[in-house]
Design a protein around this nucleic acid. Sequence first.
RNA 1: GGGCCUGUAGCUCAGCUAGGUAGAGCAUCUGGCUUUUAACCAGGUGGCCAAGGGUUCGAAUCCCUUCAGGCCCGCCA
Length: 516
Amino acid sequence: MHWADVLADELIKKGKKHVLATGITPSGPIHIGNMREVLTTDAVYRSLVEKGAKAEFIYIADDFDHLRKVYPYLPKSYEKYVGIPICDIPCPCGNHKSYADHYLEPFLNSLKKIGINPRVYRASEMYKNGKYSDAIQTALENTNNIRKIIETISKRELPKHWIPFNVRCEKCGRITSTKPVLYEFPNVEYKCDCGHEGSVDIREGGAGKLPWRIDWPARWKMLGVTFEPFGKDLGTVGGARQTGEKIVKDIYGYSPPNYAVYEFILLKGKGAMHSSKGTALSSEEMLNMTPPEVLRFLIMKNQPNKHIVFDPGFGLLSLVDEYDQNERVYFGEEEKTRGMKDLDKTYELSQPYEIPEKIPYQVPYRHLVTIVQIGKNWSGMKKILLRTGQIPKDLSDSDENHLKQRADHVKYWLECFAPDTARFEVKKNMPDMQLSNNQKKVLLSLVERLGTIHWEPKDIHNAIYDSSEMEKIPIKTTFKTIYQVILGQEKGPRAGYFLSNLDKSFVLNRFKEAVK
RNA sequence: GGGCCUGUAGCUCAGCUAGGUAGAGCAUCUGGCUUUUAACCAGGUGGCCAAGGGUUCGAAUCCCUUCAGGCCCGCCA
């Protein structure tokens, strides 16, 4: 059984109505690892709906959380905003409403692309319009109990005058620098490091924020959350999940949601991703180089608790190939091999939107990598594909769109992530290089022979072999020579097809120039 | 110290969330496509499933122990 079905079945045992939540703080570029949380939730959501349960998928952007430090990707001037909720900090690029929106917006766009449309809640709004008021009051009434829970489970000692509420300083706007002096419902008197002393009414929207360990359980109850996955860092003993379970039960009288702990996505050769260390791959970038269905596939085929090593180099091509193979099996065009566990479900969950009725037209992804570089734009590519018979003349619009999209992904990948050996470029001018006598000999022979043949892949291919044999030069050397004078490198795409896509006189002139 | 993951063919890994003859890709070897360019087809070689114990008619799969590696444990998914 697919893991999403297992999780959905567990939920259905408890009831027929469910609220599935995810939450990510948009304090920096939201990377592909964060995406795993959303996709995991989406998989369970879809399984629930399929099984006839009522389910709602919500996404909580904790934009009332404060800026923790000046991350490396921020200007130094942001020092003054540390401690202020990110919804109240100006946008780094100036084009968004706030700091939070700057990172949230592209992420929500990415979600759309991979077929996820959760109901979005913003913590800042919930705080500011008083939704949290009851939860805050309950927390404050239970200060000692909460303190005991946190101290016992997480084995931390809390400050003497700690209360489960961080007042937002009315003067400097920070929620980290205030210290409570006195709480007497409904007011908290506080002192801020900025020198301000004041008093806030907790029923007033936006007066302050519950600390994370209380905010989370409070939100479970408030929104009726029954499922929420979280990263392995939060699943640790004494962590926020554990204190949250106890707090939500004892203080808020609500039973903790089901969950899945998901492992990290590691970048091949780089390890775990950290936005703050610049080793993260943002979701936008990821979606620019990976077709959305393939990105989903990566998450869906792996159980959440298994770490994933993502290789943005050649590994990506293999991943797409694997997806395509699964697709062929799903549509019965190929035999299932043994390792394809839960193939049908995995394939269905990989679709951003509708499941195709029939198999989309496939062109091997690796081949697209070559075609993209020869054909440049889509019409050029289409011409090549038509001529070589790799697509039929009556290709449907949806198939064409699909291929076009893939070509765009390939292009982005080539520009930003592809290893050098995947790239080639037809040099406009003769590359600067020295050819051996043998190389010159074979080129001369080729000029002659190619001049007389039809400019067809097969004929070109044969001509290359004939010349090579004639001049008693290893075929390897001949290919190498061709690539060197045309591409300036020693390897390249299959020569016959490749040359046939270039202008005949261009090729002949280049060869002539090379032997001078 | 605690938690999670991993250990299966030379390499990368699937199979463990249904216990029932050990799998794929790559590499290698043989043959073919009248001739390899990270090409295709057919076939072959290759594994005490980390080690030990337990449950079972039957274990890579479930349970326990050990060993080795990775990650997490203020904030970070």
